[in-house]
């Protein structure tokens, strides 16, 4: 398999603060990878190093087949960065932004105009093309921002928190856009603090916490890390809760109590759920719910471990 991004043992600190403490990361060509982490985890620092804006301190960083330290100019020619804050020029129109970006990538005037026209169409911005970007909605501006990254067919597109600060509609807009990019075979590395976003967009997810990759894999693999599904039994009072708990523990279930609910890990099959209900048959149970683990559960479990108390 060919990797568009290959990172080994990447370290970076600012003064005494270690931001990245030995990161390994690989993004296969034509896939969407997500770097997931809370604020301050080092996501933006990683993207800045990959896009040659910052110098790595130690480690091997190859992007599009080039070492970022040895051949930064070549890396810049082959990548595209859409930063955390919209970096579109608000005074210019959408079309002017695209043409300017093409020209800065040294396309001829004619080629830059042609590219701009095609991208406006592809990103559904034709009607707004000749309006100043200041008049765009958040979602439109971010779409334009992503379009600007595609002017010269980059080998990899870095999207740093592409939906931060967008309303739900804008976020959906950007999700659709990234989904289409993925379908057309563009390699994307995106950072996000939204688990739902990583789950929905990325082929592979790396969880960044405390300067290290706490876990990586597909969304399903990450969920499997913290076990299967949980059955929640909601009970009417503390007495019922206590009897349900003792019955469950008697039969070897490792149940957890939260308020007046009992959470029991299971494999999620109907047979096991039925068996559990029979175990507590003598107790009045108000409601039963089956929970699949969300990436939030994974995220909280992993980041709590990784952050030293």
């Amino acid at each position: 398999m060919t990797y568009t991004v290959e990172v080994e043992g990447l370290r970076k600190s600012f003064g005494d603060t270690v931001v990245l403490d030995g990161i390994d990361l690989r993004v296969a060509r034509g896939t969407v990878a997500a770097l997931l982490g809370p604020n301050g985890a080092g996501k933006t620092t990683t993207v800045k190093i990959l896009s040659t804006l910052l110098r790595p301190e130690a480690g091997r960083v190859h992007v599009a087949g080039c070492d970022v330290l040895a051949r930064p100019a070549e890396v810049r020619r082959r990548i595209s960065l859409t930063g955390q804050h919209a970096t579109v020029d608000e005074v210019l129109t959408g079309r002017e932004n695209l043409v300017m970006m093409g020209r800065l990538r040294h396309l001829t005037k004619a080629a830059a105009r042609e590219r701009a026209g095609a991208l406006l169409e592809r990103f559904d911005l034709v009607e707004a093309a000749d309006r100043r970007v200041a008049t765009y909605s958040g979602g439109m501006a971010r779409r334009l921002d992503i379009a600007l990254g595609l002017v010269d067919d980059p080998a990899v597109l870095f999207l740093d928190e592409p939906t931060t600060g967008l309303d739900p509609r804008g976020r959906r807009d950007v999700w659709d856009t990234v989904g289409e990019l993925a379908a057309s075979g563009v390699t994307v590395l995106l950072t996000t603090q939204y688990l739902e976003e990583a789950d929905r967009l990325a082929d592979s997810i790396s969880v960044l916490a405390g300067g290290r990759i706490a876990a990586s894999g597909t969304a399903d693999q990450l969920k499997a890390l913290i076990g299967g599904e949980t059955v929640e039994l909601v009970l009417p009072d503390a007495g019922a809760l206590a009897s349900a708990l003792s019955l469950a523990e008697l039969r070897g279930y490792r149940a957890r109590v939260a308020d007046l609910s009992l959470h029991v890990p299971t494999d999620g099959t109907a047979a096991e759920v039925r068996e559990l209900l029979e175990v507590v048959a003598g107790v009045p149970v108000l409601r039963v719910a089956v929970h699949r683990p969300t990436l939030d559960d994974v995220f909280l479990a992993l980041t709590e471990q990784a952050v030293p108390a």
């Binding site: 100019a73 595209s80 960065l81 930063g83 955390q84 804050h85 970096t87 020029d89 800065l104 990538r105």
Partner: peptide
């Protein structure tokens, strides 16, 4: 301060 510069610096400019 607006991030325009980061974008420009990630270009072969």
């Amino acid at each position: 301060t607006s991030g325009v510069i980061d974008r420009l610096r990630s270009l072969p400019v």
